[in-house]
Amino acid sequence: MTMESGRDSYDIKQILNEMRSEYWQALEEVEVDQSTETAEYVLVRIHSDLFALEVQSCREVLRLPRIVKVPRAGKQILGIINIRGEIIAVTDLRPALDYPAHLQQEKTRLVVVRAAGLTTALLVDRVEGIVRFDAGAIETLTDGLSGARRDMVGGQIVYKEEMVVLLDLEKMFGSQEFVIDQKEEQSF
């Protein structure tokens, strides 16, 4: 799976700038209306569905760099990438969400997130932007929706007539499923 798009393809700065300006805008809006408690999320699309990631967990957004696959690591690990000299695993949520593994090159991005003490790059089909949700408007997950399993989800919310599933990154990456430890070396 060679997804070569050149080394200079990190358009982090631009996206971060956009995120930042949206962030400040949102902040200003909050100052006007402080009546309810809200939180910010990065809205991403995986396959056909919308998912929200807590903004505090998100570090940066990357265009696909060269991903080196790791044989035997499992379907959930697409491979490894080099981010400024550090090796980071690329997590593919589609198998866990029961989506087909089809790459939509054009808008595909990696969202680098930090959760449960580790850093990983989440593969998403599109980054929609940053949104702010009322804590009160978040509902528990309806059964059978969007293939997302309960243990990965922090709730759901309606946004522009679409259902958004809030991913619980801490829980996901705290579980064994997304951490690969095949040799279980003994500490002594």
């Binding site: 080394r7 060269r66 080196v68 790791v70 044989p71 035997r72 690591a73 690990i77 490894i80 990438i81 080099n82 000299g85 550090e86 090796i87 980071i88 695993a89 997590t91 003490g117 580790l118 850093t119 990983t120 990456f173 997304f178 951490v179 690969i180 430890d181 095949q182 040799k183 279980e184 070396e185």
Partner: peptide, 23 residues
């Protein structure tokens, strides 16, 4: 090392970064 997410993967003892920047 391959980071905290890939604590140990069978058949590999780690990773490196090549001259062209790819792992």
């Amino acid at each position: 090392n391959m980071g905290k997410q890939l604590k140990s993967v069978e058949f590999f003892s780690g990773a490196t970064i090549l001259g062209d920047g790819s792992p």
